[in-house]
Amino acid sequence: MSVRVQAEPFDAGAETAGFTAAQHDAGAVVTFTGIVRDVEGGLLRMEIEHYPGMTQSAIARIAEEAVSRWSLADVLVIHRFGALTPGEPIMMVATAARHRAEAFAAAEFLMDYLKSRAPFWKKEITREGAAWVEARDADEDALRRW
């Protein structure tokens, strides 16, 4: 299991290749990459703030839960902070399991929990000004299915 919280960019392709090559008992690898979406009016950049003391442990706990619920062979979570521009990867998850159903479900679980239980806050800076991205009720609702 690997959890990385970093300001630096990452190469999702290289991470996927490395993660896949390291698996021996798994029959399925699922990856998800989140990228900075442009907004109407033109996004200049997105600034991601986090809670350094809490972020790593909060994500690790979510990842451990995923490993135990779906008997994952391995899991990788990378999440960036700092200033990002549209199209840049923000974060990725990779899950490895014996079969694809477990790998897909665990990846969705990770995404749902990272969205509203990992201490990150996004701010969008456009030409019109800056605004914090608000959490949506749907994000909280998504946790109930697990």
């Binding site: 989140g34 809670y51 003391g53 809490m54 442990s57 909060a58 999440h79 923000i90 974060m91 995404m111 990272l114 969205k115 509203s116 239980r117 990992a118 201490p119 990150f120 806050w121 996004k122 914090w132 991205v133 608000e134 959490a135 994000d139 909280e140």
Partner: peptide, 28 residues
């Protein structure tokens, strides 16, 4: 969050060293 664990507003502060206040998180 109390000592870096998500908590509630009615939670006791006894023994707590760090309290953090923030809006709902928007990770992912």
């Amino acid at each position: 969050a109390l000592d870096q664990e998500l908590s509630e507003f009615d939670a006791p502060l006894d023994g707590v060293r760090e309290v953090a206040f923030f809006p709902p998180m928007t990770g992912g």
